[in-house]
């Protein structure tokens, strides 16, 4: 990263797309993929997408610099955002800057976590955020660009440069982008953001420092109880950071699994309680050395098994994805929280 150019605008030689890609790479401003030139005009259009948003931001770790709306918009332009995406990017940034998210720890860790961004509310459809088939995958500009813009902000303003500040042993594909919407239309449950106390007509971003989705395949079970038994077995991992029971995790129910659970009268609260009680790691799967470490940290087994969530409420349930007998487990970094932030619509005018 260049620390020499600390002005808000920079005059650089005219260059073609290839030269621009090389320039950005040399500056350390990219995730490795080509970027869009953040010209003053493009940045002004991006900022117009968030007109009226004057709420200041906290300093971003590790560089401890306070971003300007203009520098944030530059990153959104570079990521390929449309101006209408920008308020979602800003809400996601505000979420990761909440202290309980533990941005510094999640950026400096050797774990492979990345900021998961889930969108609820009407903006999902207005922005064409994929909530259905292949929602964690490629092919949708909004999913790709919103998550990427957040990552570029953390890299460029925050200074979380891979292999310097970002010490992840492996990293993960989620570090390029990890953004999706809840499939509220196919969910038998109240939307996630409504269960968090927001109004259905509000758009809300929820962030958590997370691993990418771990698939939960169950084609055979025909009851909600059967599905949850399968899920619990997968979640009971002695090698996920959830083993410390310090933080949350998400269960993303595929619509078909969600329908089965709802048909069998499972509520979200009952799903949380079932997983809290049964997704536990048997003592036999935990090494003697790790048992000693967990005990020193005050984490003791109950009935010869370790719980992997602090409370049932730390198990977050949402519905996404398309057809198929699959759900997803999204383990967190551990020392983090799921933070929900309302997206500020742009002021009229």
């Amino acid at each position: 990263m260049s620390d020499t150019a600390e002005t808000e605008t920079l005059d650089i030689p005219e260059m073609d797309a290839d030269a621009w890609a090389d320039f950005v790479e040399a500056q350390g401003w990219t995730d490795g993929l080509p970027t869009v030139v953040p010209s003053e005009a493009a940045v002004a259009r991006m900022m117009d997408g968030a007109r009226g948003d004057n709420e200041p931001f906290a300093a971003i770790t590790p560089r401890q610099l306070i971003p300007t709306l203009q520098s944030l918009a530059a990153n959104a332009v570079m990521a390929g955002c449309r101006p209408a995406y920008f308020p979602v990017v800003l809400a996601a940034l505000r979420g990761v800057l909440v202290a309980d998210y533990n941005l510094h720890g999640s950026l400096a860790t050797t774990h492979s976590c990345a900021p998961m961004v889930m969108v609820n509310g009407p903006l999902r459809q207005a922005l064409n955020i994929n909530c259905g088939t292949n929602c964690f995958g490629q092919g949708w500009r909004a999913n790709a660009a919103i998550g990427r813009a957040l990552q570029l902000v953390l890299n460029n303003v925050g200074g979380a440069k891979p292999a310097i500040m970002d010490r992840s042993t492996f990293g993960s594909p989620a570090k390029y982008t990890f953004c999706f919407g809840e499939n509220e239309e196919e969910s038998p449950f109240a939307p996630y953001h409504v269960r968090q106390g927001f109004r259905a007509e509000e758009s809300v971003v929820t962030v958590m420092s997370a691993e990418p989705n771990h698939n939960l395949n169950d084609h055979g079970s025909t009851t909600g109880q059967g599905l949850l038994t399968t899920f619990a077995g997968a979640i009971a991992s002695p090698a996920a950071n959830t083993i410390y029971a310090k933080g949350p995790y998400f269960i993303i129910l595929g619509p078909e699994h969600a329908a089965t659970l709802a048909r069998d009268n499972w509520t979200v609260e009952q799903i949380q309680q079932f997983l809290y009680d049964t997704a536990c790691v048997p003592l036999s799967q935990v090494s003697v050395e790790n048992r000693r470490i967990y005990e020193e940290a005050g984490h003791f087994p109950e009935n010869d098994a370790y719980k992997v969530a602090p409370t049932p409420e730390d198990i977050h349930v949402a519905v996404a994805g398309g057809a198929g007998k699959h759900s997803a487990w999204i383990p967190s970094f551990g020392g983090t929280a799921a933070i929900s932030i309302r997206v500020k619509p742009p002021a009229a005018g």
Binding site: T9, L10, A74
Partner: peptide
């Protein structure tokens, strides 16, 4: 050409 610096930020007091 002129671009907006994507790494720009203001040092807190």
């Amino acid at each position: 050409m002129r671009i907006v610096n994507p790494s720009f930020g203001i040092a807190p007091q």
